[in-house]
Every structure is written in structure tokens, then in C-alpha cells.
Design a protein around this nucleic acid. Sequence first.
DNA 1: CGTTGTTTACGTATTG
DNA 2: CAATACGTAAACAACG
Length: 254
Amino acid sequence: MPRPTRESYGDQKPPFSYIALTAMAIWSSPERMLPLSEIYRFITDRFPYYRRNTQRWQNSLRHNLSFNDCFVKVPRRPDRPGKGAYWTLHPQAFDMFENGSLLRRRKRFKLHKGEKDSLNAELAALASFNRAFLARQAGSAPGMGSSMYAPMSISRPSPEPMDAPDTAALLPAGPRPRRAFTIDALLEPEPRQSPSPPPPQQPQPHYPMPLPAPYLLAAQRYHAELLAGLQQSCLPPLWTWRDTSQFSHYTLNS
DNA sequence: CGTTGTTTACGTATTG
DNA sequence: CAATACGTAAACAACG
């Protein structure tokens, strides 16, 4: 029978909403963010039910991504060319499934206008920043034919959570723009207003490319901050998903 | 072109 | 039963 042994629920429809499925996909990824195609792949890989009628449910899923404030569209980094953007979870949306059902939430996660505006402003600034970076690249790299293989050595498996100085400042719902996100501001060496840990340690070269450029470092810095904030604020609550009976077969980050 | 996003609309299903 | 969370369809812009 349709015993959902290990791999899936067979052809049965899994008892998860699209929001839950998408959040699972995002959370299963090392960086807690995925492009749309990868979200599709996560779902079809695990749930055969979604290998048919793709046109239908993928449309619904895209609708959910755009419509629900719990999903945030993050512009691609300049060193990762590709079609769409990356999708992640909003830091304040981790308690969406407090009832634990993963089917219907008690409340819909909605951002207030101020929060939404400031978030959009920040993301738009990042997008324009990336465009500026790419434009500059195109202008000063006439012959560079090196393939852009970029093995993606992102998540350093450092066991400790790497205390992030200002991630707590992200949480309390302050519509604070944190730091001016302009190209000029990002190109500056980094404000050491942060008291304790500005380690002289050069930040990890997440960009394994032979590119010079303060632009690149600035982009890297921004993404590091963003991801640190998102991960630290979301990780613990979502971890409880592991305990839910239905989901236990699909251990995240397997 | 196909893919990715955005938006509006309406029917269905759960919850309070 | 009323409110609302969810699913689906569809039209359309934007992008590579």
C-alpha cells in the first residue's frame, strides 16, 4: 500500500502546503537560499506526486513566492550568473508554523509597510550595486576567457556558530536600515564601529575567481552579513521540523 | 522563445 | 456560520 516508507509518499499528495514545501527546500540548502529551479528540483526529487502536472503546481508555487512576505527575493551575486534570483526566508517568519501542522498556518505572515519598504530598498540597492559591478567588469576585462567554474566553497563547516556581532540587531523588528547601503559606503574599508571582533583575519575568499576589486569584496561582505542574520535568527525554530513525524524522513541538510 | 516574477480573481478548505 | 488561509487559473511584464 501507499505506505510512505522512506523516499516519499508515493503518488499521494504530501500533507504540506506549498509554503511549507518551499520553506523546506530553502532550509535544506547550505546557504538557506535557492533559485526557483532548485526549489522545483527539491520537491520533485522527494515527492513523486509533484512530477506530474508541473505546469499547475509550479504556477501556484511561484504565486506563493511573490505573494507571501515570508519569502524574500535576493539578487544574485555578481559571481553567480544565472537566470532568476535567490529565494530565502524572512528572519521574522520562522514561527509561521507554530501549530506544527505544516498545512495551514494560524496567521499569515505579513510585513508592515515600513518594514517592507526598507527591506525592498536594501535589496534594490544590492541589485543596483551588482549591476554596477558587472558593468565595471565588462569595461575592464576585454580578453578574460577563463571559465567561471566557481566550485562554490561557501559554507565553511566551522562547527561553532561564529558569533555574529550585530545579528541580534536585525531581529527586533526595527525598520532600521542598518548601514547606508550605497556603493560608496560599501567601498569603504568597513566601519569598525563594531567594537569587539573586527578580526584582522581577511574574510574568507568566497569568490574563488581571479578578480580584484573592492566591488567584489563589498558584495561578499553584504551577503555574509545578510546570511548571518538570516541563519542565526531562523535556525533554531525551524530545526524543530526534524521532530515532526511526517517530515522526519526527509532530514534536512542530509 | 522559455523561464521567472507579479498581480488579480475566485473557488475550496479550516479554523475560531 | 464568518473569516481567512490555501489552491488554482490566468494575464502580463521582465529577463537571459
